[in-house]
């Protein structure tokens, strides 16, 4: 299910004194099976952009085409589109509606009037996909969950609709390191094993560097960069100028390079950096 965005513009409160232009002529394409990071400071327009991908917002000008379907077409079946393009919101408190974990995950499938056995089967599968044990958590009260568990429940609730594309909007905000690791592991697994297209929205480069294959940088409603992940980090000054931070591992390499060391490539994860530096030192290639 490819997504094609062409010349998209959007203003909030259009036609009121509070009108605010949030998206300016954005064009982009997302292919099947990709892992795309959409990165930008808060209020840069990335959430507004992503809400066009599953027709929660419709273009005011320009177009969004998902799998050949033009979302602004009045005949388009937006309900089924929204099920195929899942959206996990930043704050799980806004998207957990039921009393227990099981009931909440069943919410999506029940909206589709599926048979009871099918609903149960979807809930079981979704819980397995996010690493929540069915027997332990199915009857658990939503409000007894930790932050990380809440987010996994929210993701499972979307997965139960069997999406082909999953939009994750700043899902690690406010989690402690352990909670964040758990969520990232789940996401990595969904992409690699389930082959779900992932659109990962964040204001931090660290996670995007570890996970994404391609990064789209949004600033003030405009697309600034759209490149494979390693290419993006070749432009540290541009990223810093819009208030984004370079992952620390890349900072180290950059600083070593400034001091005249030759290091063959840019690491994206801690492991890569460790390997890169040890090999370099072992072969003494680092020195000019």
């Amino acid at each position: 299910m490819p997504i094609a965005v062409k010349d998209l513009c959007f203003s909030y409160k259009q036609g009121t004194p509070f009108e605010k232009k949030v998206l300016h002529n954005i064009s982009l394409d997302i292919e099947d099976g990709e892992f795309v990071g959409i990165i930008g400071p808060t209020q840069s327009g990335k959430t507004t952009l992503a809400q066009h991908f599953n027709a929660l917002l419709l273009p005011q000008s320009g177009s969004v085409t998902v799998n050949g379907l033009i979302t602004s077409d009045p005949q388009a079946d937006l309900i089924s589109l929204r099920l195929q393009v899942g959206y996990v919101f930043q704050n799980p408190d806004y998207q957990l509606f039921a009393q227990t974990v099981g009931e909440d995950i069943a919410f999506g499938p029940q909206n589709q009037q599926l048979r009871k056995s099918e609903v149960t089967e979807r809930v079981t599968t979704a819980m397995k996909q996010v690493g929540l044990d069915f027997d332990t958590f199915c009857q658990r009260d939503i409000y007894a969950l930790s932050g990380g568990q809440k987010r996994r429940t929210a993701i499972a609730g979307v997965l139960a609709c069997k999406p082909k594309i999953l939009i994750l909007d700043d899902v690690t905000a406010g989690l402690d390191p352990r909670g964040r690791e758990e969520i990232l592991a789940v996401i990595r697994d969904l992409h690699q094993k389930q082959k779900i297209t992932i659109i990962y929205i964040s204001n931090s480069m660290d996670e995007a560097a570890e996970l994404a294959e391609r990064i789209i940088v949004i600033n003030r409603g405009q697309k600034q960069l759209d490149e494979p992940v390693r290419e993006v980090f070749k432009k540290p000054e541009q990223l810093r100028s819009i208030g984004l931070e370079i992952p620390e591992v890349i900072n180290v390499i950059e600083k070593l390079q400034e001091r005249g060391y030759v290091i063959p490539s840019i690491p994206l994860t801690l492991e890569e950096a460790i390997d890169l530096l040890t090999t370099a030192y072992a072969q003494r290639e680092v020195k000019r």
């Binding site: 801690l270 460790i274 530096l277 040890t278």
Partner: peptide
């Protein structure tokens, strides 16, 4: 204790494990 090290410390730790 479920916490991370600062990025630089973590990298240094990893490098030391590799024998640097």
């Amino acid at each position: 204790l479920g916490l991370d090290l600062p990025a630089a410390a973590q990298l240094a730790y990893g490098l030391k494990l590799k024998g640097l």
